[in-house]
C-alpha cells in the first residue's frame, strides 16, 4: 500500500469517527469540537480529488468561520465551562432503520451508476480556472449573489437593530 492510500484511510477513519461523535455525543460542546475534525477531514478529501481551491475554501469558511461561530454560540448560551447541556436523541431503532435504508439506496446508486468522472489524475491548481469561469460562463450567478447578499444584509440589519422608539 502506498503512503497516499494509508493517509487516505487514516483521514477517512478520523472523519467518520468524529462525525459519529457529532451525532451521538450527549454534550453539545463535544459535538461542536468533533465537528472540527469532520470538516478538516472533508477538506483533505477535496485535496485528494484535486480540488485545491475548494479545500482551502472549506477550511476558511467552515472551520474558520462557521465552526467558530457555533462554538461561540454554544459558549455564550451556557456558562463557559458548563458542558452539561444535553442533546435530544430520537428512538434508536427507528433511526437505525431509516439510516440503514438510506445507506442501502445511496450505496446502490453510488456503486452501480456510470458516473461521468472528471477527476484529474495529476494535481494541478484549479484557482485560476475557477476565476476565469466566474468571469465568463458563470458571470450571472456571481453578480446575482451580490444582490442576494445585499438583501440579506439589509434584512439582518433590520432584525438585529434596536428600535429607537421602543423602551
Amino acid at each position: 500500500m502506498e503512503a497516499t492510500q494509508v493517509l487516505f484511510w487514516f483521514i477517512a477513519v478520523v472523519t467518520i469517527l468524529s462525525a459519529g461523535i457529532v451525532a451521538f455525543s450527549s454534550k453539545l460542546i463535544h459535538s461542536a469540537f468533533a465537528l472540527l475534525a469532520t470538516l478538516v477531514g472533508f477538506a483533505a478529501f477535496y485535496v485528494y480529488l484535486g480540488a485545491d481551491f475548494l479545500a482551502v475554501a472549506q477550511i476558511m469558511i467552515y472551520v474558520g468561520g462557521i465552526l467558530i461561530l457555533i462554538i461561540f454560540g454554544v459558549m455564550m448560551t451556557h456558562r463557559i465551562y458548563d458542558t452539561s447541556k444535553r442533546t435530544a436523541h430520537n428512538s434508536l431503532i427507528l433511526s437505525l432503520l431509516g439510516g440503514a435504508a438510506m445507506a442501502a439506496i445511496l450505496g446502490m446508486i453510488i456503486f452501480r451508476s456510470p458516473w461521468t468522472a472528471t477527476v484529474f489524475k495529476t494535481l494541478k491548481p484549479t484557482t485560476s480556472m475557477i476565476g476565469t469561469s466566474i468571469l465568463t460562463n458563470y458571470l450571472l450567478p456571481f453578480e446575482v449573489i451580490s444582490v442576494l447578499l445585499l438583501g440579506a444584509l439589509v434584512g439582518a440589519v433590520y432584525l438585529a437593530r434596536r428600535e429607537e422608539d421602543e423602551e
Partner: peptide
C-alpha cells in the same frame, strides 16, 4: 442551470425568512 436554480430559490427564500 442547476446553479442558478439554487441561487434564485435562495434569493426568494432567505429574504422571505426575514419578512
Amino acid at each position: 442551470d442547476l446553479l442558478m436554480i439554487i441561487i434564485a430559490m435562495e434569493m426568494v427564500g432567505i429574504i422571505s425568512y426575514v419578512l
